[in-house]
Nucleic acid binder design. Structure first.
Lengths: 338, 338
DNA sequence: TTGTAAGCGTTATCAG
DNA sequence: CTGATAACGCTTACAA
């Protein structure tokens, strides 16, 4: 690959002038033309490393997510990429796999000067480690959790409100005995959604019944087992709110196996609005999150932190939104059979 | 950030020695200990650019896919990452968005010495441009298409065989009037699957009927419209093979709207085995492709091309596999009503 | 085994 | 506006 020196020689100018041309700095038209011609002829492309070494800029944004291909991290990554590529920058991605050590490894690799800023969507690393990381030299933006000390660099959605919205929708349809298949309660999202559920009940004057709660997990199997568990005790509820779509899908399956019709006999609402929500039968009423928007916001935050992109106000707190499909029906007195 | 020089000074050795320990080259134990201590104390991490500039190695693999978050490119990217990270390398990803110019832009950026090798899963770039790219300095591996001239660096699956398998399954269940909702025929995958369909019919001695073919597209809407079109003409088929799961899902919807039961009245098989195949109702019998495996193979190919990883035989041609679920039933004479 | 010093290909400073 | 030249931080002969 040709170097800047060869171009300079061919164009009969100094390397400095070539550098000026490739960086869009003013140069005599004649020189510019000569340089451009030489570049063309030699098929010269500046060496990114040398440039980065000299400028201390990689023109890359580092992204570490739980899984590159995660059902929703996918949408977020897409959002990030759309704004990053618009600014001529690149993406260096790594998966953290929800394992603290792997996440750390990914940060280190990326911040070892490969990335000008980091965007993180990770589960295993503690808040304090994240804070420590953010206090190094490169800007860090966090997606999916709110950390007080880093509040300006967090892009997140209000899970409490999400749980509230889901539950309230059920209440508005007349349901009062509403079960909740929680997510993994060691994860904050799970706790928040549960809290939203409780708040909605309280606001509606419905007494909270511990018996209607079953701690499940954020996977299909968890929803399935949770619902089985609930049903084995006798069906004393007319609706259920699952902490995510996958567990909702599992619940749907359990309901079907028990000969219960959704939504006629039991209404179900999920959370996340994954692609599957639309395909499951009946199509799932769920709470959607603006993944792409969140990714875009994170990218804008990162870009403005390194002085690129205009720094107009960037929204960092997003509201979940109810997506109505077919898995919820109004409460029907007759349906309740203990 | 501390530099190698500072470490050398603190450890009272030369920079060369420091370099040696960071690169695992033999050094006196005493020196090694001193260096390690200094590194620890200064929190030194080698500057990746300087290292790359000196070695002409980025320790990154460039990946350009149609969409980072694509329903199946996701699985492929995951496969790639799993082997790449195992070798301490990184991923630089870009989306080509199925637009020739964007794809080209992505190649250029990545090959501008940011990546030691390129893995491409792109649709818009022509074979000849790909060949040209592959003849530059960095190794290139192509996923999802077979290019004669680059045969050793292509990881692909036999779409003809996939179409064959899908159709044959239907035939084995006794169906003879089998419709085919093709994919976009300007895309090779679509043409190949159609060819497989035809071959299966021929092998079974079933006459090919142009009227049972409708060119659709690789999206839900396409499958929906295609099926509508077919039904409007009167239902003279008992089974249908859709060129991908999304169009199969659309077909399912059209069938349902027309009051036809799947699989009792019409059997359906899809292609791809996306997550939705499992959730659609009835669950879709489909043809799956080993996405993760393909990604792994591509990564191994790339790694071995740059001299990393052992070069054991790497499988590059994959066979699609039938995944049986619930959308296919044996042919029932009584069901056919023209 | 170790140290010295010459690159690696750019950018940026500073005269001119 | 242009050109020399000193960084940038690391690796790698080469010599000791």
């Amino acid at each position: 690959m040709a170097t800047i020196r060869e171009v300079a020689r061919l164009a009969k100018v100094s390397v400095a002038t070539v550098s000026r041309v490739t960086n869009g700095v003013a140069v005599t038209p004649a020189n510019k033309a000569a340089v451009l011609a030489a570049i063309e002829q030699l098929d010269f492309r500046p060496n990114a490393f040398a440039r980065s070494l000299a400028t201390d800029r990689s023109s890359a944004i580092g992204v570490v997510v739980n899984e590159v291909t995660g059902l929703f991290s996918g949408g977020i990554v897409q959002g990030i990429e759309s704004v990053v590529e618009k600014h001529g920058m690149h993406l260096a991605v790594s998966s953290g796999h929800r394992v603290a050590e792997k996440e750390k490894q990914a940060f280190e690799a990326l911040s070892q000067s490969r990335a000008d800023a980091l965007i993180l969507l990770v589960s295993a690393t503690s808040d304090s480690d994240l804070i420590e990381l953010a206090n190094r030299d490169r800007p860090v933006v966090i997606i999916g959790r709110y950390i007080e000390e880093l509040s300006d660099n967090c892009v997140y959605v209000d899970n409490v409100h999400g749980g509230y919205v889901a539950t309230k929708h059920l209440i508005a349809q007349g349901h009062r005995r509403i079960a909740h298949l929680t997510g993994n309660l060691s994860i904050k999202d799970g706790r928040d959604r549960l809290e939203g559920y409780k708040t909605a009940l309280r606001d509606a004057g419905i007494e909270f019944d511990e018996a209607l709660i079953v701690e499940s997990e954020f996977v299909e199997e968890g929803g399935y087992r949770g619902m089985q568990h609930l049903l084995r005790r006798g069906r004393d509820f007319t609706a259920a709110f699952a902490a995510n779509d996958q567990s909702a899908a599992g619940a749907l399956l359990a309901l079907k196996e028990n000969g219960l019709k959704v939504p006629d006999e039991v209404s179900v609402v999920g959370y996340d609005d994954l692609l599957l929500a639309k395909y499951v039968s009946p199509a799932l009423t769920t709470v959607g999150q603006p993944y792409a928007e969140m990714g875009k916001a994170a990218a804008k935050l990162a870009l403005s932190a390194i002085g690129i992109s205009s720094a107009t106000r960037i929204v960092t707190k997003f509201e979940p939104k109810l997506v109505v499909r077919e898995s919820v029906a109004p409460y029907q007195k007759v349906a309740v059979t203990a």
